[in-house]
Amino acid sequence: MIQLESLRAGYPARSVLEDVTLTFGPGELTVLAGPNGCGKSTFLRTILGLQPRLGGGIWLDGQALERLTPRQRARRISYLAQSRNVPDINARRMVLHGRFPYLDYPRRYRPEDQLAVRRALEQVDALELAERPMAELSGGQRQRIYFAMVLAQDTQNVLLDEPTAYLDVSCQLEVMALARRMADEGRTVVLVLHDLCLALRAADRLVVFAEGRLQADGPPEKLCADGVLERVFGVTVRRVQTASGWRYYYA
């Protein structure tokens, strides 16, 4: 669980987000949406402690963020960054890095780490990619490996920053299915998405930021009905009922 109380995030000379009070609970898939530059990535980085907060409080599973060491934080919350390096290693080695917070000196991997990696690769259906070099994988395959690394980190809370960026449509759906599975396993999943239709379709809960503030927070259907998205994004959002639920489109 992630709790935020009157959070103020940004840079010392410029605040990006003001007075954000939110709680993200287990088993919930929350999508953060908002125009470019509204502070979604800054928000995630602040929750992780990668960027100092300007005010307010952050609690991870009931523990104040500042009382946790970097290693303790890494055992509670994992993060898929927006820009990721592609190191010259194979996929299994990449996923093994997810076990780093659990290793003591001299950082030798234990049988349980190897087991966690195997399980993570199975969960993302990438066991056959394990010995392939990261550089040779397609964008979608690589994303599955990054997800496996997050799974191997085995944290209750998961933050994903634009996990569908640069992926084709089928890979985007695959990535969202993985995020859904994480939430269904009882994790707290918070992700930033730019694709509004995908966000509306996949999220249990939508949090909208704009103009440096929290604009709306609730189920996608409610926010859609309230006209929040029209107001924030300046587009018309419509939905149609299909056999597998509501589908959204905008114009």
Partner: peptide
């Protein structure tokens, strides 16, 4: 990368 490394503790 800096962010990923920091998030791994």
């Amino acid at each position: 990368g800096t962010d990923t490394a920091q998030s791994l503790g």
